[in-house]
Design a protein around this nucleic acid. Structure first.
Lengths: 255, 255
DNA sequence: ATTGACCTTCACGCTGCGTCAAGGTGTAAA
DNA sequence: TTTACACCTTGACGCAGCGTGAAGGTCAAT
């Protein structure tokens, strides 16, 4: 398939000016030009543009992208793996930021009493990501790649070793406070909301990405699924529903 | 709490140059200057900077941010809701992009036979986000907001009414197949992997965004947490571990 | 042969800072 | 006290990555 400049632009979501600029700086040249000087792009250029956009998405400068793509040691398979990891990092940061907004909203609505200045900027800093970018040089990539994979795996390992005690403590605290909260009968009360908050913290140990929807979904699952329901309702019938309602309120999901 | 320019910069993860520039263009002025002309920032400025960074993160120009923040009709609560939605949109786009990388990797490894040119650029286009940005004008915000909130709420509602039966069916199927799989003793076997796959499908009803990490985390949770563990191990001891191992293999998380 | 949607090159302008330069300030140690 | 050193100031230049004309050629259909 061959593309004119505008068609390629539409396909990839970039402007024709951008494509001309990329030609100008030599990062993406058309496969040929028509008799009248029109730029014609082919299959290779489509794929190369995709790679360029992956790097651009990660904030790599066009100059560096050019160097990377034209390096003789460029390994597209490794690069893709690296992209994947970077994107996952980016999503984690986004999740932090979302949690930040949500906490700020909760603060404004009085559902949460305080927020440190530090917390207010959680998720904005991109230091770790930028450090990764600095390491985007082709040679270090392979080594660093394995390292981060290991780190990702370590997270679960360490968790079961180091933090296991804390998670268990949290879980039992949730259990205790939930029992108290149920007695009040008010899922919007402070005890119930504290339970929901603790539950969220607890989830933090298992989910690298928190979302209100997932939290609310889990809460609904507690009610729908017999095994969860029977666990929660063991001490006091209706506890699963109560917890769900509390979490729905906490996450802002009305029924 | 009062901050010097550098301290505020560190707190928020921006450079001192940036803060001076923000002063220069009048978007964020210090509350006062010390006797020797040093910029001193107070609590209000911290909060304002947070708001600025939220908008900046969404790609709004500083000029527009200035206009928005100084508009008499500016409603910070609504703005925060809007930020939240935009961030969720952004995450959806990121998920598309991640899916794109993963499919490209699969293509390279021959696990997938083809990928259209259109698919190659899935997740790059930010049209929807930009359109939202255009709507960042205060008046449309409220209306558009409620609509998407309603949609999000609908997801859970419909679920409990319509799909409840299917979810329950899935859950019991998982239970059955898992019991069979445990007998084989091989978490990498096809029965175990089918269980993991069903488990993933089942999760799909509760999580709007699936991630391998979260799935693996949940699996680990099944082992760490007594209530889950006792449920799974009821029929056959070691079932929780078995399921975790199967899911680890399924998601690619080695221990 | 005219219209309208394409394409070309050239060139200026903009945003959001990074990065010196040249100097003043605060304070703690020597 | 002075010396070091980390902090602060204003001013000015520079840069990436395009957006946005201008002035003109091309292509296909009507």
């Amino acid at each position: 398939m061959e593309y004119t400049i505008q068609r390629l632009g539409q396909l990839a979501g970039v402007s024709t000016r951008t494509l001309r600029y990329y030609d100008e700086i030599g990062i993406l040249k058309p496969v040929r030009t028509s008799s009248s000087g029109y730029r014609i792009y082919g299959q290779e250029e489509v794929d190369r543009l995709q790679q360029i956009l992956f790097y651009r998405e990660m904030g790599v400068s066009l100059e560096k992208i050019k160097a990377i793509l034209s390096s003789p040691s460029y390994d597209s398979a490794k690069a893709l793996e690296e992209h994947r990891k970077q994107l996952l990092d980016k999503r984690k940061q986004l999740d932090l930021l979302i949690a930040n907004v949500e906490k700020t909203i909760a603060l404004n609505e009085g559902r949460v009493s305080s927020m440190t200045d530090k917390e207010k900027f959680e998720g904005f800093k991109q230091k770790m990501i930028e450090e990764n970018e600095a390491k985007y040089g082709a040679e270090i990539r392979g080594k660093y790649g394995d390292e981060t994979v290991d780190k990702a795996n370590m997270k679960l390992k360490n968790m079961s070793e180091e933090k296991h005690a804390e998670v268990t403590r949290l879980a039992s605290e949730i259990s205790d406070i939930l029992a108290e909260a149920v007695k009040t009968g008010d899922p919007s009360g402070s005890l119930a909301q504290k339970t929901a908050d603790l539950h969220r913290q607890w989830l933090g140990y298992y989910w690298s990405t928190y979302s209100k929807e997932a939290h609310a979904g889990l809460a609904q699952m507690y009610v729908d699924d017999e095994r969860f329901k029977s666990y929660y309702d063991a001490k006091e019938p209706g506890t699963a529903e109560f917890l769900r309602d509390a979490i729905f309120i906490y996450t802002g999901f009305k029924q």
